[in-house]
Design a protein around this nucleic acid. Structure first.
Length: 405
DNA sequence: AATCCACAGGAAAGTATGGACA
DNA sequence: TGTCCATACTTTCCTGTGGATT
């Protein structure tokens, strides 16, 4: 992947750096997920007989192979259908619709996105302004015309929120000609329990759990990639083991493990080192961690950022754990620095629980009894200085409350 | 065992946004 | 243009509650 740069450094370490592209690279052979593949296969098999596939729900944290396995299964299914159609008179019609619901926060939006996916570009539907029942009717009309087996893959489905109407509609479609199977992918374990009862029954016919990887499993995955993407003698086994260990310790995410190893390779290449050693992994870990923090911060609303910044400041001043009331004051100062009016106390509580949810802070419930009452205390879950650094980079305005300047 | 505080967090309603349609 | 359909993010109002103190 040369960009016409005069530097040729990445050649020392990588033979194929794309192997470490977590988004784009699909390994030919999936390892450490045999069990899930078998369950998956049995749920999809009906398609090959022209029947309706099972609805499947997939659970697992980020980087546990949910999406990769799904992609693998779809490729497998399509190939088998093709083979079947070549060999038999009776053809199987199979359509697959994949949709990432990351940015889709309601049933309504998902339904519209699905509809637009099915319609051609001249016939697209606006994302607002239509009656929900119209949308669903149109959606079923489209599905009716397609016919055959239709697999609808909804990635990051937990974003739907409270209202799971789409799922209900898709689980019991008012369609004659098509056999619809829904594959829902979620990284939120509690999502299943929050589904309404009628959806739960019909949609969770088959549930497959993707547990976090253990250190040894991550090691295997990394070795597989290293064999394909790194120069044969360019890496120490210890470096791979360490990358795996760090990732296992944190989240058990293959994505993270691969990110760390790739970053380590980049550093090694930049320093024109001959081999990828443990020191490079050490350095890469910090960089990947920092990247993760900025990513999380990036997803916060402005006031969420101010709230987090306030907490980081409190942490630096050794004022943590800090109760909401006191945090509200610091938050007020931060808002002031940004020439923004602070929101209400209640709004701050909401922002803080959001910050807790994405894992940037930890909550600590306290009860001081008769005179003291009940309250919460917050504490940073990541390095406060790193957070403040990240703010310094993202924001043009300097919001430091440090009196020494 | 009864009390009572300081919040947490649910519910409802408000503000501002934007599209479709008659 | 007014009415309907949404969204995101608020504020206001309120009820619930755990456990040290009485």
């Amino acid at each position: 992947m040369s960009r016409g740069s005069p530097f040729n450094t990445t050649q020392n370490i990588f033979t194929d750096r794309d192997v470490f592209d977590v988004e784009g690279f699909q390994p030919i052979e999936l390892i450490e997920r045999e069990e899930q593949i078998n369950e998956y296969a049995s749920a999809l098999e009906p398609v090959l007989n022209g029947w309706k596939p099972n609805n499947i729900f997939i659970y697992g944290k980020t980087g546990t192979g949910k999406t990769a396995t799904t992609q693998y299964m779809i490729d497998w299914l399509q190939k088998d259908v093709e083979e079947h159609n070549e060999a038999n008179e009776e053809k199987i019609a199979l359509s697959i619709i994949q949709l990432n619901c990351e940015a889709l926060t309601s049933s309504y939006q998902i339904a519209i996105e699905l509809l637009n996916e099915l319609r051609d570009t001249q016939n697209q539907v606006a994302t607002r302004g239509h009656a929900p029942s119209d949308i669903y009717n149109w959606l079923f009309e489209e599905l009716e015309t397609i016919g055959g087996a239709v697999l609808i893959v909804l990635d990051e489905i937990d974003n739907v929120g409270e209202d799971d109407t789409v799922l209900y509609k898709l689980a019991r479609p008012e369609v004659e000609e098509a056999n619809i199977g829904v594959i829902g992918i979620s990284n939120d374990f509690s999502f299943r329990d929050d589904l309404s009862a009628k959806v739960k029954d019909s949609l969770c016919e088959k549930e497959i759990l993707f547990p976090a990887y253990e250190s040894a499993e991550l090691r295997e995955i990394l070795f597989q990639r290293a064999e394909r993407g790194l120069r044969e003698d360019a890496y120490e086994d210890g470096a791979i083991a360490l990358s795996a260990a760090y990732a296992a310790q944190d989240k058990g995410s293959a994505r993270q493990a691969i990110d760390i190893l790739r970053e380590a390779g980049d550093i090694a290449a930049r320093e024109e080192a001959e081999t990828l050693t443990e020191e490079f992994v050490e350095a890469a870990k910090g960089i990947v961690e920092r990247g993760r923090i900025s990513e999380m911060i990036g997803g916060l609303s402005p006031h969420g950022k101010y709230a987090l910044h306030a907490l980081a400041i409190a942490e630096r001043e050794d004022d943590t754990p800090i109760r909401t009331k006191d945090l509200y004051e610091i938050y007020g100062i931060v808002c002031n620095e940004h020439a923004t009016d602070p929101l209400s106390n209640r709004a701050l509580r909401d922002h803080m629980s959001e910050i807790d949810l994405i894992g940037l802070a930890t909550v600590n419930k306290q009860n001081a009894g008769r005179a003291g009452g009940k309250y919460k205390q917050y504490q940073m879950d990541v390095n406060a200085d790193r957070v403040i650094d990240a703010f310094a980079q993202t924001d043009a305005v300097d919001v430091s409350v440090d009196p020494v300047r």
